[in-house]
Design a protein around this nucleic acid. Structure first.
Length: 720
RNA sequence: GGCCACUUAGCUCAGUUGGUUAGAGCGUGCGAUUCACAUUCGCAAGGUCACUGGUUCAAAUCCAGUAGUGGUCACCA
């Protein structure tokens, strides 16, 4: 017998070598599987893209959980004999990466990006991205991921850039992308616009001030932001409000409001809630989304009073160049001094902050690029909108979301979706493929001919390129074989926290650009929390590098610990005890093998011989029931259940009962032949079932068994 | 505020279409162990399935409500 089995199983000594063997075999690549005749060329396909990790950092336990689920699906389907493709890649994560590198440079060198210049700064970002990329790849290999590395992609590489520009141009030509001047979410800290989805609300205490613009102004208004009121051009009231009906349509001149001259028109708008505050709303078209919309409806003038640095851009001496927070106090004091303040009330309110920089969002009117989600266009002879495309594939179940409850959330989100602001004033990302020359505008995949054309300085929202991921990784816009063979992908597996950011955008991009869904199924997993149920975060210091845990317990144990007990969409807690338990389990499988090797060195495994014995026939029949059960669980995405059932069977049925009972039988020469075949058969079949969950140890044992020709990773999944 | 999820053993969680005596792992207690097991095995204790009501021959499971916890979306100026 192999000497190795006399020691406890030590994953650290084995796993890297096993992974290397897999890689060298080439079987992660379906083309090789076909060539080597382990997969039929006309077999059904299974394809899945890896949600590309951000190069802004390295992997955490949540990513490890994701990788475990996906690798289970991939290995299972490969063993079923399908043409199986899992495509790896990483995401440049534009704003997240840029702001991280900016912070580092600021801290180390005291410089900002403008000190370095666009070219030098981008070099630094790329270096940072590459380092993280290499770590991420190493981490994924440690987890045992059977990704086809020959097809690795990056959201910002040349091929993906072509896809981005191609889609942009198509949308531009279809009138779905437009450049427009309107109030956007401006992040003064990151010096860029962000989309509605990149806003994080923070609850804070604030004061609600109620006042009049001047002594003879008839209506009092309420606000938490008095400094913006120097930009007011109207007061809106509800059309039904009897108190104010007499003033509607009139314009009042205010000669001095905190040093500014105002011209306020009283308008009636049904959006105004007469119950709130004084029932009158001071309209600041330039610095509020809602007020902007009201101003559009009533054709009100626009008066910007705040600039990109969150400072007052008015000319009057009191407020000029003051930060908004200072200006607020100055205006409040001015109101008190002039006896215009009626009430100051402490309230709690949610303020908008930028997800990546933490900067307080300042709504500003700016000229930006948008995707119009409500504009009709013609596709396959039908009039559609992007919104309708996104809704219909979920509503008619062309795409399935697991767990189902997220379908409702998705529909709700899409229904309320507004135009998507896609331009960013940052440097790291896909440059907008638009050029300007005097009054001319050119949009194209390539730069226009001739001199004096200047390219738009902005880059695209990172989710624009991630949205193309399912087909850009397959070589689109070229009509590649991969695209024909593997799109739409079979399943998209990702965290529920990026359902809107990413899943929705992929559906938008694919149904638009290809007229085809990006995936047939969406499987959403939950968050991995620490043993106290807290979110993993830097500030708590509870972040664990999966590689460290793997070094201690082995990748198989880590995978099992993450999978067992965690259903789709559910958050999970992870603890040392759980890792330990599955390390024990790995050793149990190891010892089971040792016992069988000692008593059945050739690993005889003929089930026909075994079933001569009635009891063994029952064992084997029971096992077939289990096999079917496990298969159904996996097919229905119940990996947690399949894993637990296998664990339980191997330890408490196979080891505790079947092996225990076999000890006597092996001693008697008359039944030992049957017993050997029964044990050998069940061992081999169990290794196959366990392989997707615990690939390393099962492959290791398989290779140590006599007569094992193929690698376990390309053995056939047991069927009845 | 809207919507969603969760509440089952000390802890972490299963319990699929309603159907024997509600399960597992960890932990606890007792015992065994020259044995494939450094990481072993057996036995045991431990539950008002959050609460109230309903449907049903039958409810942890379905329905309605209440409470608590968490999430998410939208925010009112």
């Amino acid at each position: 017998m192999n000497e190795e089995f006399k020691k406890p199983y030590n994953p650290v000594e084995q796993e890297d070598a096993i992974y290397q063997k897999w890689e060298e075999s080439g079987f992660f690549n379906p083309d090789v599987c076909i060539k080597e005749n382990v997969t039929k060329s006309d077999a059904d396909y299974f394809s899945i893209v890896l949600p590309p990790p951000n190069v802004t950092g390295t992997l955490h336990m949540g990513s490890a959980f994701m990788l475990a689920i996906e690798d289970i699906m991939v290995r299972y389907n490969r063993m079923l004999g399908k043409k199986t493709l899992w495509i790896p890649g990483t995401d440049h994560a534009a704003i997240a990466t840029q702001s991280k590198v900016e912070k580092i440079i600021q801290k180390k060198e005291g410089k900002n990006r403008h000190d370095l210049g666009r070219e030098e700064f981008l070099k630094r970002v790329e270096k940072f991205a590459l380092e993280n990329h290499d770590t991420i790849i190493m981490q994924m290999k440690k987890m045992g991921c059977s990704l086809d590395w020959s097809r690795e992609a990056f959201t910002l590489d040349k091929q993906r850039n072509l896809a981005v520009k191609t889609v942009f141009k198509k949308m531009y030509d279809d009138g779905l992308i437009y450049r427009g001047y309107k109030v956007v979410n401006w992040d003064p800290k990151g010096q860029t616009t962000i989309s509605d989805d990149e806003i994080v609300y923070e609850e804070r205490k604030a004061t609600m001030y109620t006042f009049k613009y001047s002594k003879d102004f008839p209506i009092a208004i309420s606000t938490t932001r008095p400094e913006t009121k120097v930009g007011d051009t109207a007061v809106a009231v509800n059309p039904e409000d009897e108190r104010y009906k007499q003033y509607v349509g009139k314009t009042f001149e205010v000669s001095d409001f905190a040093g500014e001259k105002l011209s306020i028109k009283v308008i009636a708008d049904k959006e105004v809630d007469p119950e709130f505050g004084t029932g009158a709303l001071g309209v600041t078209p330039a610095h509020s989304q809602i007020d902007w919309e009201i101003a559009q409806r009533h054709v009100l003038p626009l008066k910007p009073v705040i600039n990109e640095y969150a400072r007052m851009s008015v000319e009057s001496s009191l407020l000029k160049d003051k930060k908004v927070t200072e200006a607020r106090e100055l205006v409040v004091q001015w109101l008190r001094d002039n006896k215009l303040m009626q009430e100051e009330k402490e309230i709690s309110q949610n303020i908008s902050t930028a997800e990546r920089t933490g900067g307080i969002i300042e709504p500003l009117p700016k000229l930006q690029w948008f995707i119009d989600v409500n504009k009709e266009f013609s596709q396959n002879g039908k009039q559609v909108t992007l919104k309708k495309l996104m809704l219909s594939v979920i509503e008619d179940k062309t795409i399935n979301i697991i767990p189902e409850r997220f379908e409702k959330e998705y529909v709700h989100w899409i229904t309320n979706l507004k135009d998507w602001c896609i331009s960013r004033q940052i440097w790291y990302g896909h440059r907008i493929p638009v050029w300007y020359k005097n009054d001319e505008v050119y949009c194209g995949v390539e730069a226009p001919q001739g001199n004096d054309w200047e390219q738009d300085a902005d880059t695209l929202d990172t989710w624009f390129s991630s949205g193309l991921w399912t087909f850009s990784v397959l070589g689109w816009p070229e009509q590649t074989e991969d695209l024909k063979n593997y799109h739409p992908t079979t399943v998209l597996e990702t965290g529920y926290d990026i359902l809107f950011f990413w899943v929705a955008r992929m559906i938008l991009m694919s149904t638009y650009a290809l007229g085809e869904i990006p995936f047939k199924n969406v499987y959403l997993h939950g968050l991995v929390r620490d043993n106290q149920g807290r979110k993993i975060s830097k500030s708590l210091g509870n972040n664990v590098d999966p590689v460290d845990v793997i070094a201690k317990y082995g990748a198989d144990a880590v995978r099992m610990a993450l999978i067992v007990g965690t259903g789709p969409g559910n958050d999970s807690k992870i603890s040392e005890e759980k890792f330990k338990a599955y390390k024990h389990f790995a050793n149990k499988i190891w010892n089971i093998t040792r016992f069988i090797l000692e008593n059945n060195p050739e690993i005889k495994s003929d089930s026909k011989i075994a079933t001569r014995n009635e009891v063994y026939k029952k064992y084997i029949d029971d096992f077939k029931v289990l096999t079917k059960d496990i298969t159904i669980d996996i097919e229905n995405y119940r990996f947690y259940m399949a894993a637990e059932k296998l664990y339980h069977y191997t330890w408490h049925t196979f080891a505790d009962i079947i092996i225990e009972e076999s000890k006597e039988k092996l001693k008697s020469s008359e039944s030992s032949e049957e017993t050997q075949n029964m044990l050998g058969f069940l061992l081999k079949e169990q290794l196959k079932l366990l392989h997707p969950f615990m690939p390393f140890i099962t492959e290791k044992i398989w290779s140590a068994l006599p007569n094992s020709k193929n690698m376990l990773m390309v053995e056939k999944w047991p069927t009845n």
